[in-house]
Write a protein that binds this DNA or RNA. Structure first.
Lengths: 333, 333
DNA sequence: AGTCGTTGCTGGAACGATCCAGCATGCGCA
DNA sequence: TGCGCATGCTGGATCGTTCCAGCAACGACT
């Protein structure tokens, strides 16, 4: 309600010191006696002083904000919502704001002057804004690797998607599956490419072919239902379906129901991305939990470390997953 | 890759004019001849000039960013993801960045210096950060009304939730429902309060009591399953359930399946918030489509108008819904 | 006693844009 | 010719902060 905000100079005047001393006292740097520092701090508190972030940014040549770019098709996936909030939380802990970048569209040129760094999650090779972001002139941390282009990001947080899919397939095999199939997007993202490669590797290792069908990156239940129906018709003895895209698992269940297959016994169903859809399905669906909130936190942490110099450019950190086993892979036992 | 960014002065020097003229030419204001303007613009383009937003903010006393606050429990609802992206898009059209506020936590004091305005979506009375946001010293636009506190927001975008629930109940009655129930959160939000009131009004008008049960604001399928099971046990002749929270509809379906009721004939099921869960359920569930992306756009538009003076403080705009009828309310016909 | 280093503080100069007063110039009009 | 006025442009001040050079004062050395 104060008509004009109170500045550092107001605080300095009220405390009877120079603005430099006030700045030093509040900022923690410089040489100030303990008594003076406390005095200034109490005056500042009393006056309700709030540092002007624009002025600070201007002087420091840093904005105190980072940008977050999500896949264009992210809007229906609660996975990314959780990830975003994880990143926001972590950024806040370091005093950074997180600005949400409009997906798909070029975000206007002056990005570099608006954010200190960028988080680019699940960069897809055919997303035209990704190269632009990588070239924005600020540190970029990707969530999963970027498979296109020549500019390397400054950092990355990666999951071992090969290992998680292998674990999932092992789990299905252990529960009696002999003829598993995988619904995965085309390999335009690191995640999808890794899943496809892992399926191939697992097939060779076990001598059991994993049938792979392509579905969109953010497939709808309708699309996975059609794909599953095709699988059921085409693959004799099909007894397990792994659905990669988040949110599309119900389609697999629908196709199973329509074909008269009981999920959990006749047909085991699992997902590569846990979330509301997998948890809330009937029956609940086994899925790899990528722990999106922690993933978001990890990405923000890497970027923050890069900005403070606590991490070197090129840093890559690993993020752990867990397997949430549920009724959909109970097996015949 | 330029080691230091090019400033307005660089452009002015290269174009052979003063910085004031350069500023006028690029900013559109002031008096500049058409020839000079074009010349300066081409020089700026050639040099790759990007205005420094911190300097601009400092001088203009505005940040070019708005904040978005979502309910603490929003993370699992794709509704809010869609809304957020709608708001981001609309904000970008007016050159505004959108910073995501950490839900639940007090977002640090200096909010007023970091954003020009705030979007507070579905403010809940028991969310301690809402009063703080309303008091941050910048215009606030709420999505739905805020039922607590004394500080009025500067603007709001509201839905006629009473009308949409009435339409939903009418639809159910028309499809043969005689004994409908409503699963709604406690009236801590405008939305939930309106739904409860509308249910009461509809009951009185039609002489048919709508049984209301309380579930959490962001109920999980497990919670709605339990609530629905109770309803089935307690309410003789129950033939329709309206589930208010987004994402929790599968729980209602699960309870129906467990009780041996066929959804769409024995038990009609509908939701108050359309989304991935309702669309992807088996069978697909009839729901009120709040058109979250457009809702987000509308909120951002109001705030933008308030900031430019195109709207007066106190402005309230209305947002339309539609009803998506699906298999879950087919009826016995 | 003179030099040195440290401590505590000050004043001014950035940072890069915008805004305002002001200054030529040229044109219309009495 | 002289006055008014619009046009096109300039220089400097300004926003609020941080950073740097520098200056007393003072104790500890040789």
């Amino acid at each position: 309600m104060t008509s004009r905000s109170v500045t550092l100079i107001d605080v300095a005047r009220a405390a009877g010191v120079s603005k430099s001393t006030a700045s030093n006292a509040l900022g923690g740097s410089g040489r100030v006696s303990e008594a003076t520092r406390e005095h200034i701090q109490s005056v500042a508190r009393e006056l309700g002083y709030r540092p002007n972030s624009a002025a600070r940014s201007l002087r420091r040549a840093s904005t105190g904000a980072i940008g977050l770019h999500l896949p264009r098709t992210a809007t229906r996936l609660d996975y990314y919502m959780n990830l975003a909030f994880g990143a926001v939380e972590r950024a806040r802990e370091d005093g950074l704001d997180l600005v949400l970048l409009a997906p798909g569209t070029a975000s206007g040129g002056g990005l570099a002057s608006r954010v200190d760094g960028l988080l680019v999650i699940d960069p897809e090779v055919d997303d035209p804004s990704v190269p632009e972001l990588l070239d924005a002139g600020v540190p970029v941390v990707t969530g999963e690797r970027y498979l296109g282009g020549d500019v390397a990001p400054s950092g990355a947080v990666v999951c071992d998607n090969a290992a998680s899919l292998a674990a999932l397939l092992d789990h299905l095999a252990e529960r009696g599956a002999r003829r598993p199939a995988l619904l995965a997007p085309d390999p335009g993202s690191d995640w999808a490419a890794a899943l496809r490669a892992a399926a191939g590797a697992w097939s060779r290792r076990k001598g059991v072919e994993v049938v792979v069908r392509t579905v969109p990156f953010a497939a709808t239940p309708t699309e996975t239902e059609a794909a599953t129906a095709e699988l059921i018709a085409d693959v004799p003895g099909l007894d397990a379906v792994v659905c990669a895209p988040d949110g599309a698992v119900p389609g697999v269940l629908a196709a199973a129901a329509r074909a008269g297959l009981r999920v959990g016994t006749d047909l085991l169903v699992a997902g590569c991305v846990d979330g509301a859809a997998a948890r809330g399905a009937i029956p609940p669906v086994t899925a790899v939990d990528l722990r999106p909130a922690e993933y978001g936190r990890a990405c923000a942490a890497v970027l923050s470390d890069l900005l403070t110099g606590a991490a070197e450019p090129g840093v890559v950190r690993h993020h752990d997953w867990t397997l949430n086993v549920r009724e959909s892979t109970r097996g015949r036992a």
